[in-house]
């Protein structure tokens, strides 16, 4: 069964939104995400382009500046809410893990 859109965020969605806490050029996210995650997460340029379009449509981000083809974006309240929801979900997962294995099990 298809997953409901934005019920959970993928890592790439999560970090893209995270980068937009402050105003940022879309293209710069390509460099920020690997830097932020110590190269653990990379967002492909095509994927980022599509995600930004989808976030705009869902009003999770908004456009702040247009300079030719360069556009900058910032997180909206709705986007922030989605991020918080995702954090709460991850925290709940972590708490469940601790309950079963205890804190010392995490490497």
């Amino acid at each position: 069964m298809a997953r409901e859109k934005y019920q959970t965020l993928t890592e790439q969605m999560f970090y893209t939104l995270l980068c937009l806490k402050d105003e940022c050029y879309g293209m710069d996210i390509l460099d920020r995400v690997p830097a932020m995650t110590n190269q653990r997460v990379n967002v492909g340029s095509g994927t980022l382009y599509t995600l930004l379009e989808q976030f705009l449509d869902a009003k999770m981000i908004r456009e702040t500046k247009v300079e030719g083809r360069r556009r900058s974006y910032i997180l909206t309240d709705k986007g922030r809410e989605m991020l918080e929801k995702e954090c709460a979900r991850i925290r709940a997962q972590l708490a469940d893990y601790h309950m079963i294995f205890g804190k010392e099990e995490i490497q």
Partner: peptide
């Protein structure tokens, strides 16, 4: 290089 498409769902949809 990092692939252009890194999300299979979005890629299949495109």
């Amino acid at each position: 290089p990092t692939p252009i498409e890194t999300d299979a769902t979005l890629e299949v949809s495109a």
